[in-house]
Computed example of a mutant assay.
Amino acid sequence: MANIAFLGLGVMGYPMAGHLQAAGHSVTVYNRTTAKAEKWAAEHGGAFAATPREAATGADFVMSCVGNDDDLRSVVLGENGALAGMAAGTCFVDHTTVSAAVTRELYAAADAQQVSFVDAPVSGGQAGAENGQLGIMCGGDEGAYARAEPIMEIYAKVCKRLGESGAGQLTKMVNQICIAGLVQGLSEGLHFAEKAGLDGKAVVEVIQAGAAGSWQMSNRYETMLDDEFNHGFAVDWMRKDLGICLQTANENGASLPVTALVDQFYKDVQKQGGGRWDTSSLIKRLRAMG
């Protein structure tokens, strides 16, 4: 059993940290809003700390799941950052979806202190975090990954190292690129069915068994037809992720015309007041168009 610090208790981090404590590890959490850290500690029996540095002091592993590049830097670097409390030979595992550039920057900062750094963004949404069924895509040194893998497997459905530092983040970009096109296609299909006077649920029951089937279709078609969009991963966060994808594509020369278009469609959803709706809300944009 290990001493583990977990930084960030959002819709993903809160249950992930809970799985670690339930597995018998000794977990200390940090959250920018202290009240949430106190609630977690009361619910799960772990401890909470006032700063990332305090949480990380004495930890074998430090896990993070925060918002964006700047949030990640704030919990890792500086006088009260986690690295200031981490001893040589310990391991930092970042589950945030951020740019590969900040991952490599923090990898270098950790390496200078003889601390391992694994980028390990996740996929599976709030339900995947709560059920311990996340897909975890990792980058970093082989030895660091081998040490961290048994910890991550506690809340993973699949966990895999894809290459050196930054490879996990690049793989998460592929994930988001694929999702963007799928959700738009599903939205258009369901919208077409509605306009054609078809029973959307009956249509999906037939087509999901064939080549049109996808996780998005199986798990979101009913709520999309019922105009319900409170299922976790928000449009605001998807736009953040797609922005990272498009910026990286601009740097490496990849062509992402559909991703760029869907990003603008999500911008339209934000203008409808849907920034906190989940990503399947693309269909509401189509309905608003008539």
Rank of each mutant, 00 (worst) to 15 (best):
Arg104Glu: 01
Ala110Leu: 09
Gly78Lys: 11
Ser99Thr: 13
Ala84Gln: 06
Ser116Gln: 15
Ser116Asp: 13
Pro121Glu: 11
Val76Asp: 01
Tyr107Asn: 09
Asn68Ser: 09
Asn80Lys: 09
Ala84Glu: 03
Ala82Ser: 07
Asn80Tyr: 05
Ala112Cys: 10
Leu72Asp: 08
Asp69Trp: 03
Asp70Pro: 07
Val66Asp: 02
Asp69Val: 08
Thr97Asn: 15
Ala112Tyr: 05
Asp119Met: 04
Tyr107Pro: 07
Phe117Met: 10
Leu106Asn: 05
Ser116Ile: 13
Ser74Gly: 11
Val76Leu: 14
Val118Ile: 15
Leu83His: 00
Ser116Gly: 15
Val122Arg: 12
Ala84Lys: 08
Leu77Thr: 03
Arg104Thr: 05
Phe92Lys: 01
Ser74Leu: 11
Ala120Gly: 02
Ser99Leu: 08
Glu105Phe: 05
Val102Leu: 11
Arg104Lys: 12
Val75Thr: 03
Thr97Ala: 15
Asp69Pro: 09
Gly85Cys: 03
Tyr107Thr: 09
Ser74Asn: 03
Gly67Pro: 11
Gly67Ser: 13
Phe92Met: 12
Gly85Arg: 01
Asp111His: 14
Arg73Trp: 08
Asp70His: 15
Asp71Trp: 01
Ala110His: 09
Leu72Glu: 01
Pro121Leu: 13
Arg73Cys: 06
Ala110Val: 10
Asp69Phe: 07
Ala82Pro: 01
Met86Glu: 03
Leu77Asp: 05
Thr96Ile: 03
Ala88Thr: 06
Asn80Ala: 10
Glu105Val: 10
Leu106Cys: 14
Gln114Lys: 11
Val93Met: 02
His95Thr: 04
Val75Tyr: 06
Ala108Gly: 08
Gly89Arg: 11
Gly67Thr: 13
Pro121His: 12
Cys91Asn: 13
Val102Lys: 00
Val93Leu: 10
Glu79Gln: 10
Asp119Lys: 02
Glu105Gly: 08
Gly85Met: 00
Val66Leu: 14
Val93Asn: 07
Ser116Pro: 15
Phe92Cys: 13
Thr103Cys: 04
Val93Tyr: 01
Thr103Pro: 01
Val76Gln: 06
Glu79Ile: 02
Val122Tyr: 13
Arg104Gly: 03
Phe117Leu: 13
Phe92Trp: 12
Cys91Trp: 05
Tyr107Cys: 08
Ser99Val: 04
Val66His: 00
Glu79Asn: 12
Asp70Leu: 07
Val98Ile: 14
Glu105Asn: 08
Ala101Pro: 06
Ala88Leu: 09
Thr96Met: 06
Cys91Asp: 13
Gln113Ser: 01
Val118Arg: 15
Ser116Val: 15
Leu72Trp: 05
Ala112Asp: 04
Ala84Val: 06
Ser116Phe: 10
Val122Gly: 09
Asn68Lys: 14
Ala101Leu: 13
His95Glu: 14
Ala108Gln: 07
Asp69Gln: 09
Ala88Ser: 11
Ser99His: 00
Cys91Lys: 05
Ala101Glu: 02
Ala109Gln: 04
Ser116Thr: 13
Arg104Ser: 02
Val102Pro: 02
Met86Arg: 08
Leu106Lys: 09
Ala120Ser: 14
Leu106Asp: 06
Ser74Phe: 07
Ser74Thr: 04
Ala120Val: 06
Ala87Tyr: 02
Ala82Arg: 00
Pro121Thr: 15
Gly78Val: 07
Arg104Leu: 12
Val115Ser: 04
Thr90Val: 10
Pro121Phe: 01
Thr103Ser: 00
Gly85Pro: 10
Ala101Tyr: 08
Asp71Ile: 04
Glu105Tyr: 12
Ala101Thr: 02
